[in-house]
Computed example of a mutant assay.
Amino acid sequence: MKVARFHTSKGLMEFELYENDAPGTVENFCDLVNQEFYNGLIFHQYIPDTLIQTGCPNGDGTGGPGYFIKCELKGKKQFHDKGVLSMANSGRDTNGSQFIICLDQANVKHLDGNHTCFGKLRKTGFEVLSKLRRFDVIESIELGEIEEVFEMNERDYQ
């Protein structure tokens, strides 16, 4: 299973990437990671109990990589929940580099069917996610592979 390890100013978060569910989106994200596109970018938007957003090279939500990719909305994992990585866009098929991390399922359900989900936070990282705010920094992202094992998500503990 492909994972992305986000080194942020608040700590480390590890995300499973949805290679089979959103292959084009994951490929685009990984290409940008390999180009070190995200290194040093800030989280430019924070909406409490809803989402935190990053991936804008301008730091204000107006920038991107200079191209668009298509939405991938039909997979089994295309639902928004706490800890899900989802592409930000300004309409269908305008995905690029900006993405959100969902903070509460009830407040992001309206994104289902409109924004591509391409990964989910693994159990280690929810504490860091709860501390992230506007102007916190992605220091770097590294890609890796891990053996796929059953892992309960935060909802399973409640």
Rank of each mutant, 00 (worst) to 15 (best):
T8G: 03
T8V: 04
S9K: 00
S9R: 04
K10L: 06
K10C: 10
K10G: 07
L12C: 05
L12G: 02
M13G: 09
F15V: 13
E16H: 04
L17Q: 03
Y18D: 10
E19T: 13
D21A: 14
D21H: 12
A22D: 01
P23S: 02
T25Y: 02
T25M: 02
V26Y: 01
E27K: 08
C30P: 12
C30N: 14
D31A: 14
V33L: 11
V33F: 11
Q35N: 11
E36F: 14
F37W: 06
N39R: 10
L41Y: 02
F43R: 02
H44C: 09
H44R: 02
Q45T: 15
Q45N: 06
Q45P: 00
P48T: 08
D49V: 14
L51W: 15
I52F: 06
I52W: 02
Q53H: 08
T54W: 00
T54E: 01
G55I: 10
G55H: 04
N58K: 03
G59Q: 07
G59A: 11
D60H: 04
D60W: 05
D60C: 10
G61A: 06
T62C: 03
G63R: 00
G64L: 03
P65C: 07
K70F: 11
K70P: 08
C71D: 13
G75N: 13
G75K: 05
K77I: 04
K77C: 10
Q78K: 08
F79D: 06
H80K: 04
H80T: 06
D81I: 03
D81A: 13
K82T: 15
K82V: 14
V84F: 05
L85F: 12
S86A: 13
M87Q: 00
A88R: 02
N89S: 12
N89F: 06
N89P: 12
S90Y: 08
G91H: 05
G91V: 15
D93G: 08
G96L: 06
S97Y: 07
F99Y: 15
I100P: 01
I101V: 15
I101N: 03
C102Q: 00
D104S: 15
Q105D: 14
Q105S: 15
A106T: 14
A106H: 06
N107K: 15
K109V: 15
K109M: 15
K109R: 15
H110T: 12
G113R: 06
G113D: 12
G113E: 11
C117P: 08
C117Y: 00
C117D: 03
F118S: 04
F118K: 00
G119W: 02
K120I: 13
L121T: 07
L121K: 00
R122L: 15
R122H: 05
K123V: 09
K123W: 01
K123S: 07
K123H: 00
K123P: 09
K123F: 05
G125V: 11
V128A: 01
L129C: 09
S130Q: 04
K131G: 01
K131C: 12
L132I: 15
L132N: 01
R133I: 08
R133N: 12
R133Y: 03
